[in-house]
Design a protein around this nucleic acid. Structure first.
Lengths: 118, 118
DNA sequence: CTGCATCCATGACGATACTG
DNA sequence: CAGTATCGTCATGGATGCAG
């Protein structure tokens, strides 16, 4: 059922899904982060969803999970070598997002600035 | 509820969603296409979903819909100027997707080639 | 501190049938 | 040809509570 001949789709489905690129962005810009630090940097995410995302990214070889058996436990996450491949994508995304933001673009509302100019 | 300070999220939510990048890819590589041509190039999509996606992309200023009032009606879609900004993103996505495919990557299965090597 | 189990609401996706 | 209308299913996101 994957879209025939479109190799992008599975990748997109992986890095998509609420919060995922934000996590990648943070791990890319901040480096290794602990679970609680990620929570702090994303005030609106729930623990379950963050865990879901991290586990999924781990399964896919994109982040590396390191657990220190101390009390209390400490768990850190960092990008794997493959995970760092994604910075090209995330940066491209970021470039366009910032550019469009400057044009007044909003989801489901288009480019108000441009329509006004026509 | 948008992820605070992450301008990427709304953009990602827009270009995400089953088939969307495939549509963008086709309009980017093939140029202007008619509704039926898009259907033909994506054998597994339903008319409703294709319509949904195109309407959404149109609302967001990414594709331009042109209708010729003939019998039978002819409707064409093409990328707007802003839509073409996305080719950077789609190409980045495609580059990584192809690269990972070569490494044996599959969603939820990681990189078998690499694990075998370790 | 880090996370798992459970439950629920939402909406995306898709099949089918019908229309100007 | 190019849709619209309707309905059903299922995955996702999220709240809450418990646990090592």
């Amino acid at each position: 059922m994957a879209s025939n001949g479109c190799p992008v789709d599975p990748l997109l489905r992986t890095i998509t899904g609420r919060w995922t690129t934000h996590i990648l962005w943070l791990l890319y810009t901040e480096g290794e982060l602990r679970f609680g630090e990620l929570m702090g940097l994303m005030p609106d995410i729930s623990a379950k969803v963050l865990t879901d995302r991290l586990r999924m990214l781990e399964r896919n070889g994109i982040v590396l999970r390191t657990q220190k058996q101390t009390i209390p436990p400490q768990v850190s996450y960092e990008l794997t070598k493959q995970g760092q491949d994604l910075h090209v994508v995330v940066r491209a995304l970021n470039t366009v997002a910032v550019e469009w933001q400057a044009l007044g673009w909003e989801p489901d509302k288009g480019f108000p600035a441009l329509e006004a100019a026509e």
